[in-house]
Design a protein around this nucleic acid. Structure first.
Lengths: 228, 228
DNA sequence: CGGGGGCTTGAGGCCACTCAACGATAGTGG
DNA sequence: CCACTATCGTTGAGTGGCCTCAAGCCCCCG
């Protein structure tokens, strides 16, 4: 969902400061800290003060909202290279958790805002990232409001294909329940849709690992997606 | 969804330049034009170049996406005072139409960006408006993905209550189909939910006008909404 | 080997959708 | 003034897609 995702697996991950348009050495005000989270642990909670902005160095993150009775809607998955936690005024609007063991870089939000005050390029990049998040949310509204279960799963596969397929295989970090809560479905419905796509030969699994998926017919898949 | 909505009906509508943090006289580069659209006409289409930013002076606007088979998802309603058309990189991501006869002010996007380059306050307001749009979309994802039909209609009523109730009455500009396409439902389901709320005495209609609604028990209504 | 988490699959139920009929209102033209 | 039409909204009957509940398999990890 960010345009700052690293697409060349051989290249070193561009760091967050670069993504914001800052040369690493030239902004001594902005310090880049590293932190790690074990699988399943919370990074920050909804309504907590938004003091930091994060970039995924390794692993994966889910951000979600809860209703009081436990229903969950995942708004986005953050993969290696993605920047998140920027989603705010002054407090976070999602809870975020590490899906697997995850390492992140973080910078103080405040210091970022200070730089943006005087540096128009940084301000532009801030706006650009927010706009990318907005665009993703807008597309997701269409999916959640109007698409069938099969169409949703297909859209998910194509999105993940773009973001994490390496050597023809995509290895999903998230479980079926996460996918379901992202797509507004139940995990059983997701499983059935994947089984159906498997049956008709559109996708394959690597060995017995249900999270390693090969897309065998992207054209056919794209036809099922129904573009706007 | 914008925080720049005029809430005092007696006060003159703050104009768009004020909303962006510009004194009207001090920015001769940015000109403010007026235009009107008849009920049902398109203001701009999805994927058209985004040359202008708009503010509703009177009337109401819907912005939506379509799937190829005609399914429609309305992403937002723009009411008097709201600014829209800012949703973009360089091209619009929604189609917008006047719901009723509508007058708008418009400014060139390009000139706005130029001012933002040098004026940090304008840049901040631009980012703030985009963030407000993002927040609305995020909340709407939760609604579309996880709420029941009754909860959706209740949320809609409370949203509209905040935005257009005057003298205890809200007059909806949009028809049942628009509401349905906003909430990811059918118009029949919306109608049934409203009937149910009417039956149990939570809302009333003014005369036989099904678009003039009085909320009789906001507390009870809020209880049905299920906060996150 | 036992336990638990993750995934699949089946059977049945329910909520929202589909299809249809009908009433009310507004606009149009004779 | 009265058809005539079109639009909008409500309501009912029946269907179907997704959910719920449950069983069972596989794999990992103790």
């Amino acid at each position: 969902m960010f345009s700052y995702v690293n697409t060349d697996p051989a290249a070193p991950l561009p760091n967050m400061l670069g993504a914001f348009g800052m040369a690493s050495a030239s902004s001594p005000m902005v310090t880049l800290n590293e932190f790690t989270y074990k699988k399943g642990t919370e990074i920050y909670g909804e309504k907590e003060p938004a003091d930091y902005v994060y970039q995924v160095k390794s692993g994966a993150v889910r951000s979600y909202k809860l209703l009081s009775d436990g229903r969950r809607q995942i708004g986005a998955f953050h993969l290696v290279g993605d920047i998140f936690g920027l989603e705010n005024g002054s407090e976070h609007r999602f809870t975020t958790e590490a899906i697997v063991d995850t390492a992140v870089h973080l910078v103080k939000r405040r210091s970022l805002e200070l730089v943006a005050e005087s540096d128009a390029m940084v301000a532009r990049n801030l706006l650009g990232m927010t706009t990318n998040n907005l665009q993703h949310a807008e597309d997701h509204m269409l999916l959640l409001g109007r698409k069938t279960s099969l169409e949703r799963v297909v859209a998910f596969l194509l999105e993940m294909d773009k973001r994490l397929t390496a050597a023809g295989v995509m290895t999903l970090p998230m479980c079926r329940r996460d996918i379901a809560d992202y797509l507004g479905l139940t995990l059983e419905t997701v499983s059935r849709a994947l089984s159906r796509l498997h049956e008709i030969g559109i996708l394959g699994f690597i060995g017995n690992n249900q999270r390693q998926i090969v897309l065998l017919d992207r054209q056919h898949l794209a036809n099922l997606e129904l573009r706007d």
